[in-house]
């Protein structure tokens, strides 16, 4: 039985930037525990000798020539923007610092 706690769900919601309601935290705590129990079986299957597959078709060195292509116009860039000043996207005050 996995033990997903409310605090854990709240922490995950913070990492995922979603302002969950208390009710959502409650239901997700239960659901997540159930789901994690159901999928925890993957831990038992493969040993250290099994390599991980992150990509279904093994390929490498897919590279692009360094040649400039098309750019978006301001009209295209800002058409879907919630807020902008005609040159830049606008956001409300930032609390945190850059990484």
């Amino acid at each position: 039985m996995s033990e997903i706690t409310r605090e854990q769900v709240q922490h995950l919601a913070g990492l995922a930037r979603i302002a969950l309601t208390d009710d959502e935290v409650t239901s997700l705590t239960t659901e997540l525990s159930q789901i994690v129990d159901a999928i925890a079986t993957v831990r038992e299957v493969a040993g250290d000798d099994v390599p991980a597959t992150s990509h279904p078709v093994p390929m490498a060195n897919v590279l692009r020539a360094d040649e400039a292509g098309e750019t978006l116009t301001h009209a295209e860039a800002f058409a879907g923007a919630p807020s902008h000043d005609g040159e830049r996207f606008r956001v409300s005050a930032i609390l945190g610092e850059e990484q």
Binding site: R17, I18, A19, A77, G80, A81, P82, S83, F89, V91, S92, A93, I94, L95, G96
Partner: peptide
């Protein structure tokens, strides 16, 4: 920030707005 729904209240930080 660049597209899609924004839910915003006066005085909120961008972190709050995103969430």
């Amino acid at each position: 920030v660049r597209f899609g729904l924004r839910v915003e209240q006066q005085g909120q930080t961008v972190e709050d707005v995103m969430a």
